[in-house]
Design a protein around this nucleic acid. Structure first.
Lengths: 328, 328
DNA sequence: CTGAAAGCGCTTACAG
DNA sequence: CTGAAAGCGCTTACAG
């Protein structure tokens, strides 16, 4: 800019005025400045401008796994909102490593992003964020709440899927179709039960209880491979992966005429072409990202209300015909 | 930092030394500075530091559609490399709008990212990037080459899938199984033929010719819905979407005993469970991102060789049994 | 071991 | 209409 000024024979401020389209510059001088800009290939350094004006105009997104389609769609939703409000977004992935989440969050915070959306990495303790939030960044959690949950120790909004409600609807639907022995398959055996499984199991339990059916705890903690042998006639699966595994297990046991109706959490591109047919609990990950972004923007605009928890619906969609009545 | 200095009763430089862990500070003064930092909740402004040192330590990623699983995986690969080299990455999506690509690229360039990876948005003319590249950012294209291709007008490396080779292998495979009437379904009818379709069609044509089979141009520009009626016994589909549509079309025509063997470009999570069975051309999008990132890093390290085109393989994987011999 | 000055590339507030 | 000075928050030379 200094070079441009001296080449055009004007002061720095005049160049600044031209670059910013501020009024009060003679067409003649403006012309001189413009051609100097052209000659020198000058482009304003946005970072320097932002430093001086005290802005950042940047958000951060921290995925637990950015190759995951849900989190990718979530990010797309966030970027949409960010673009609408003139923010650029930094993104990074922790690959399931809590340490990496903290390093990323601190790095973003050090660059003074205005706010960030975080998909909490399981096993992390998000209290480290409290200091950053106090220092001025806003944080919104997506897909999972921060840990420890519900204590107010981590002052950020959260946008999640209503897993409990979805599971309730799924199990109620199966019951309406005559099923009485209904299981839940999710998580690895012996592994700690994740947030999603916890919420889905709660929904299953509530639906069974509401229908006056007994709840067998063993049915609520199966692996997909156990489905055929467990004596259940229907099951809810906790993730796309589990759904695929369940289908493979059910299929290979087909010869034994032990059909199990499968409802999967999460939709598939080929869900309607799969055999045996499935029903899915579908949700909109783009909307999660958009909602998180809007919450963030609202906070940046000064909204100081207590942390909000937004639950987005999971809707039952029959892709194949999974609700065949149970045998006998 | 100024506040910290005055509270600790030292000069700015001493604070800087402590913050950066530079040697030459008495433990006593260091202690005083540290507690001042603590008291004031000071955190160094990374952006200011980068401005002063003339670095940026940031890359950019511009997706055509960041909700697309391939592009998400690509981004994950890029972020991996970026993290290894201490870069943060800005990301954005054009949603298919060439204008948005240019705006994003210029915004990133204005923030002085060191380099960027771009998934070219179809219909864009990437010559606008030449000026930015001249100004100092490196650009690497991924998944598709820039436009106009092969003219050297856009000086950037490109990492793509070897679609031609994949299609060649797929069609040769079908021929080996006795098929003679083989089609290609991709693109919307009447729409301009995209880069991927072009390459896949070329591979099909070459494999047919190499086997001494006649090439019917009409077979090479079908929609999935036309497959059953076209008289082909096998087909390659140009995208996951086309594969799904082809399966639906083939399935609904199943009653007429016109089976068509389907090979899809791109793998599916449920590919093995789909009926009719399919074979897929599988590729590794994470590796594309990683390769693009490594190319970028090499350029930033000073590599000034002419632009490279890297082609990554697409491998044939039978998920179901798609290669049944053709009828009669 | 510690510090006062200049500067990264820009803008803000104030004069002419 | 135009400009000289100060400053955003930090670091880089250079002195003491």
């Amino acid at each position: 800019m200094k070079d441009v000024a001296s080449r055009a024979g004007v002061a720095l401020k005049t160049v600044s005025r031209v670059v910013n389209g501020e009024p009060g510059v003679t067409p003649a001088t403006a012309e001189r400045v413009l051609s100097a800009i052209e000659d020198l290939g000058f482009r304003r350094n946005e970072s320097a401008r932002l430093l001086r004006t005290g802005q950042t105009a940047a958000l951060g997104f921290i995925a637990a796994n950015s190759a995951d389609p849900d989190q990718a769609a979530l990010q797309a939703g966030l970027e949409e909102v960010a673009a609408d409000h003139g923010f650029l977004v930094y993104s990074g992935s922790t690959h399931g490593d809590p340490d990496r989440e903290q390093r990323l969050a601190l790095a973003l915070s050090a660059r003074r992003v205005d706010g960030m959306v975080i998909v909490p990495t399981p096993g992390d303790d998000h209290r480290y964020l409290a200091a950053e939030i106090r220092a001025g960044v806003a944080a919104v959690f997506a897909l999972r709440p921060p840990t420890p949950a519900g204590t107010g120790a981590v002052p950020g909004d959260a946008v999640v899927i209503d897993e409990r409600g979805g599971a309730y609807a799924a199990v109620a639907h199966l019951i309406a179709h005559g099923h009485r022995r209904i299981g839940y398959a999710g998580g690895a055996p012996g592994a700690p039960v994740g947030y999603r499984s916890q919420r889905l199991m709660l929904g299953c339990r509530q639906a069974m209880t509401a229908a006056g059916l007994p709840v067998d705890e063993a049915w609520l903690s199966m692996t997909p491979g156990q489905l055929s042998a467990a004596g259940v006639t229907a099951a809810l699966c906790g993730s796309r992966q589990h759904t695929a595994q369940a289908l493979r297990a059910v299929r290979s046991a087909d010869g034994q005429r032990r059909r199990v109706a499968v409802i999967g959490f999460g939709d598939f591109e080929l869900a309607d072409l799969v055999s045996p047919g499935i029903t899915v609990l579908s949700y909109d990950p783009v909307r999660i990202g958009r909602t998180a972004g809007e919450l963030l923007v609202r906070r940046l605009a000064g909204d100081a209300a207590p942390p909000r928890l937004v639950e987005l619906p999971a809707t039952l969609i029959p892709r194949g015909s999974a609700e065949f009545p149970p045998p006998d």
